[in-house]
Design a protein around this nucleic acid. Structure first.
Length: 516
RNA sequence: GGGCCUGUAGCUCAGCUAGGUAGAGCAUCUGGCUUUUAACCAGGUGGCCGAGGGUUCGAAUCCCUCCAGGCCCGCCA
């Protein structure tokens, strides 16, 4: 059984409406690792719905959390914003309402592309509209109890006058620097390190925030959360999940949601991703080089408790190939590889939106890598594909869109991540090269033969071999020569297929030129 | 120090939740049309299922101990 179904069935033991929650703090570019949490939740959500359960998928952006420090990708001027809620900090590009919006909006766009459509909650709004009011009161009334729970479970010492509420200083706007002096419901008198002394009315929204260890369980109750995954960093003993569970039960009288702890996505050769260390791959970027169904596939095919090594280099080609292979198996065009796990569920969960009724038109991804570099744009590429009969004349609109979308992904990959060995450029002019006599001889023979070759991959390929045999020219030399005069490099894509994609006249002309 | 996960063929991993004759892909070897930057087909080789103990008629699978590796663990989600 697919892991999402296992989790869904566990939820369905209770016949009620399930709220599946996921949340990420938009403190910077949101990376693929974070994406795992959202897609994991989405998978379980879909599975519950499929089994006729009642479910809602929600996404909570904790934009009321404060900026911890000036991250490497931020200008120095952000120093003055450290400590303020993300929703109160100006946008780095000035196009969004706030710092939080800046990172959130592109992430939400990515989610849409992946077919994830949660109800979005923003913590800043939840606080400002008073959704947290009751929880704040309960927390403050139970300060001692909460303090004991946290100290006992996390083995951490809290400061003497600690209260489960971070006051936002009215003057400087920071939620990290105000110290409570006196608490008399509903007022808290405080002094801030900026010198301000003030009084906060906790029943008025937005004057402060519950610390994370209390915020999380409070949120479960406010939104009736029944399921929420979290990364292994929270799963540690005495960690925020442990204290959250205890606080939910003992303070908020709420049964903690079910969960799954997920492993991290590691970047091949670089290890775990950290935005702050520059070793993160943002969700945006990943989606630009990986088709959405393939990105989903990567996560659906791997149990959340397994870490994923993601290779943005050649590995991506294998990943897409693997996806295509499973797609063919799903549509029974070829046999599934023995031992494939949950083929049907995995494929269906990988679809961003509708599950195709028939198999989408496939072109091997590696071919696309060559094609994309042969043609200038989609029009060009389509022309080549049509001329070489690689796509049917009556290609459907959906199939064309699908193909075009893949071409765009390949282009982005080639520009940003592909290793040099797969890159090439068809030179507009004959490159400056020194050819040996043997090579020149080969080109002469090729020049004679070319006009008679029917312009198809296999014929071209065979033609090259014939010359090689007749003239006793090593086949390797033959290929190298071709790559040199067209690409200006010694290696290149499979020659027959490659040349057939080029215009015949162009090749004939180039060979003629090279012989001179 | 604590926690989670992993250990099965040369490599990457299924199989373990419901115990019942050890599997796949790649690599390698052989044969077929000399086949390029990782696009063929057919067949073969290859494993003390990390080690030890226990439960059982029977264990890769369940229980215990140990060993090795990965990752995580400050009011940093």
């Amino acid at each position: 059984m697919h892991w999402a179904d296992v989790l869904a069935e566990d939820l369905l033991k209770e016949n009620k409406k399930h709220v599946l929650a996921t949340g990420i703090t938009p403190s910077g570019p949101i990376h693929v690792g974070n994406m795992r949490e959202v897609l994991t939740t989405d998978a379980v959500y879909r599975s519950v719905l499929k089994k006729n359960g009642d479910a809602e998928l929600i996404y909570i952006a904790d934009d009321f959390d404060n900026l911890r420090r000036v991250y490497p990708f931020l200008p120095k001027t952000y120093e003055k914003h450290v400590g303020k809620p993300l929703s109160d900090i100006p946008c780095p590009c000035n196009k969004h309402k706030s710092y939080a919006e800046h990172y959130l909006s592109s992430f939400l766009d990515s989610l849409k592309e992946l077919g994830v459509n949660p109800t979005v909650y923003k913590a800043s709004e939840m606080y400002k509209t008073g959704l947290y009011e009751e929880s704040i009161q309960i927390a403050l009334e139970n300060t001692d109890k909460i303090c004991k729970i946290i100290e006992k479970i996390s083995k951490r010492q809290l400061p003497k006058n600690w209260i489960p509420f971070n006051i936002r200083c009215e003057k400087c706007g920071k939620i990290t620097s105000a110290e409570p002096v006196l608490y008399d419901y509903p007022y808290i008198d405080y002094t801030c390190s900026c010198g301000y002394e003030g009084r906060a009315n906790v029943t008025k929204g937005g004057l402060g925030k519950l610390p994370w260890r209390i915020d999380w369980p409070a949120r479960w109750k406010i939104l009736n959360v029944t399921f929420e995954p979290f990364g292994k960093d929270h799963g540690t003993v005495g960690g925020t999940h442990d204290t959250g569970v205890a606080i939910a039960k003992e303070i908020f009288n709420y049964t903690p949601p079910k969960y799954i702890m997920y492993e991290f996505i590691l970047l091949k050769g670089k290890g775990a991703m950290h935005s702050s260390k520059g070793t993160a791959l943002s969700a945006d970027e990943m989606l630009k080089m990986t088709p959405p169904e393939v990105l989903r596939f990567l996560l659906m095919d791997n149990h959340p408790n397994k870490h994923i090594q993601f290779d943005p280099g050649l590995g991506i080609l294998n990943l897409v190939d693997e996806y295509d292979q499973q797609e063919r198996a799903y549509f029974k065009i070829e046999e599934e590889i023995k031992g494939t796990k949950d083929l049907i569920e995995t494929y269906e969960l990988s679809q961003p939106y509708e599950i195709p009724k028939k198999i989408p038109f496939q072109l091997p991804y590696r071919h696309l890598v060559t094609l994309v570099q042969t043609g200038e744009n989609w029009k060009d590429i389509k022309k080549i594909l049509t001329r070489t009969n690689q796509i049917p004349k009556d290609l459907s609109k959906e199939d064309e869109d699908h193909l075009k979308q893949r071409v765009e992904h390949v282009q982005y990959w080639l520009e940003n991540f592909a290793p040099d060995m797969v890159k090439f450029k068809v030179k507009k002019q004959l490159p400056k090269i020194n050819l040996t006599d043997e090579q020149t001889n080969f080109l002469k023979k090729l020049n004679d033969k070319l006009p008679d070759i029917k312009w198809e991959a296999e014929n071209i390929h065979n033609g090259i071999y014939e010359i090689s045999e007749q003239e006793k020219i090593p086949i390797k030399t033959a290929f190298t020569t071709i790559y040199q005069i067209i690409l200006g490099q010694e290696k290149g894509p499979r020659a027959g297929f490659f040349l057939s994609n080029l215009d015949k006249d162009f090749v004939v002309k180039r060979v003629k030129e090279a012989v001179k």
